[in-house]
Design a protein around this nucleic acid. Structure first.
Lengths: 339, 339
DNA sequence: TTTGGTTACGCAAACGTTTTCGTGTTAGTA
DNA sequence: TACTAACACGAAAACGTTTGCGTAACCAAA
């Protein structure tokens, strides 16, 4: 790569000092009109652009936001990034994305790299490994240093920082109510293991709705799936129950879609024999047959909110109180629950 | 945010010079054992980490890779990013992602920001707007300065740089041959407008296969869809043809899934009445009913390859010849074409 | 006593900017 | 003629590192 042109090179070219060049390029009236014009023309010709690193070092500001997420090949997370990117760009920030791959170790590594001065703040959705290990030292360290930090979706209550979350309880509750409304009696929940905060909250909403409707909560209607094993095998068990449920609420789109495919293989009629709905309106839900009802999550909005909170925190250093924004959900009713 | 601890602060704390601290922290034997130990303990206690910006400026190296893509909420592109991220991390690089949103102007903006010294190299898949406008100045400028640049998927032939591409012609050809093999006679192509390089290449493969099989190419079997308008409306026309095709090859997953849904609404049997297949094995294809056959694209591998080419170019500055890696595709046959 | 070699540290340049505070020259005014 | 102001530019510090070189102080050998 050819070395880029710098102030120094322009300065020696004209036999003037670096500061003169700097001022000339900024159109300062301190510099004579003629020289100023010549320098500007020269710099323009050689496509001079100030070196960002130098500026960042001088201004003690990178205008970069770091984002650490568990996965990137994931409709919800990529939607959130999209929202972050959009808002950040509007405010003159760039985005650096790191993937933790659900691993605690990788997450800590990402934190170390990003907080070495490369970014002005961090937006994080914690890895499953972190939730499992309950080791939050890397997060606590940031909070202690008052490093701008926003958590979203997979948050940790013990850590005090700005947070953006989905109304998981409300969403699951509304969804369950919907299933009750269409006359379903035995509603199963396809959830994650309990240490995943989001799964736990959605279970809470599910239970709340059952309770309000006077249904009793049956533990064997709650299936906790392990993502590291074969999903279909685990879901199939639900259908083998002699007293099979007549509705399924899944905590994400993939669980729901898998359940739907299995139901069809078994020759069941959806939603008559069994109604199914999921969380997140990704692309899958639209194209299954019948299309899946779901709880829409508004990831883009969530990303925008997270970026807004972070940039606010970065720019107004006054230690305002930590905010906790809840993004409400809404039901997208499609044919999989439309009787 | 509390200001981070620096060499200077440690130096004044111990009443020694900055260089002494620097050497002590690096374990240099130039520094006496006792002082060295004390300084290390102190730095460790205050969690000293060298400021990355300063290092980057000094070493004239950021160890960051910039990625500019048209969309991020897109299975293929997010898979590529995943591959890039993985390889880059392995080699000690970080990734900065910018989205052009298919807009030429946004792409140029992204280029300007990233090439100001913030990244060591760029991986790009050009926006539709850029392909349409045929304005490649921003790319040419980089090539002229020998700035490390890799293009993938949506490439531009006129620009000389490292490239990674899908074997679009071969993939489309294999897919078409498959449709011919299962006895289909009138194979339609659901493609993009011609200025999208990828669409054009896939059309080429489609035509090649027809030609080899002795089929004649009928222009009215080739549908060019406009992404900015309602897709379903455009695809429906295909089914209204009195001499309706008996197979569809779509250049991406969404086109294929939409076609499938419409076919079902029309009460057609798939694949008997009409076989359908797409490109990219995203999540949709698995969950449609019947599941969609498709040409698998191996985006992750593509990302890894792109990152490898870029890092090679960054680290071995010798101007090797530009490489052009082709990632081969394979057919994933599912029920939508299995008679 | 001179020479030579350690040991243990400091100086200063370099990376590329911006910006404050000089300072020399010229022109204008009393 | 002398003083002042405007003009046009330079020096240097600052951001935080790393590193080659210089140099005191000390000790040992000649």
């Amino acid at each position: 790569m050819k070395t880029r042109i710098t102030l120094k090179k322009i300065a020696t070219e004209f036999g003037v000092s670096i500061s003169t060049v700097s001022k000339a390029l900024k159109g300062s009236h301190e510099i004579g009109e003629e020289l100023r014009g010549k320098i500007q023309a020269f710099a323009n010709f050689y496509n001079y652009k100030p070196n960002n690193l130098a500026l960042q070092l001088r201004n003690q500001k990178t205008s970069v936001i770091g984002v650490v997420i568990p996965e990137i090949v994931h409709h919800f997370f990529s939607t959130v990034i999209d929202g972050i990117e959009h808002y950040a760009n509007k405010k003159g920030y760039n985005v650096m994305v790191c993937v933790s791959n659900e691993s605690y170790e990788k997450e800590v590594l990402n934190f170390n790299v990003l907080t070495n001065g490369s970014v002005d703040g961090l937006i994080v959705s914690v890895a499953r490994g972190t939730q499992e290990s309950k080791n939050y030292k890397h997060l606590e360290a940031l909070v202690k240093d008052e490093f701008p930090l926003v958590m979203f979706d997979r948050i940790i209550n013990e850590i005090e920082c700005d947070k953006v979350l989905i109304d998981d309880i409300g969403g699951a509750c509304k969804a369950t109510e919907h299933l009750i409304e269409i006359g379903k009696k035995r509603i199963a929940l396809l959830s994650t293991e309990d240490f995943v905060s989001v799964g736990l909250l959605r279970k809470e909403g599910y239970i709340k709705a059952l309770y309000h409707a006077g249904y009793k909560v049956e533990d064997d209607l709650i299936y906790k799936l392990d993502d590291s094993k074969d999903l279909k095998e685990q879901i199939k068990k639900l259908f083998e129950d002699p007293n099979m449920p007549d509705a399924i609420l899944a905590v994400n789109e993939v669980y729901a879609a898998n359940a739907l495919v299995i139901a069809q293989e078994k020759g069941l009629s959806i939603p008559k024999d069994i109604a199914i709905m999921g969380f997140t309106s990704g692309l899958i839900s639209e194209f299954t047959s019948p299309p899946l009802s779901c709880v829409e999550q508004h990831g883009y909005l969530m990303g925008e909110q997270a970026a807004e909170l972070l940039i606010d925190r970065i720019e107004h250093k006054e230690n305002k109180e930590y905010k906790r924004e809840v993004i409400s959900t809404n039901l997208k009713i499609r044919k999989s629950t439309k009787c």
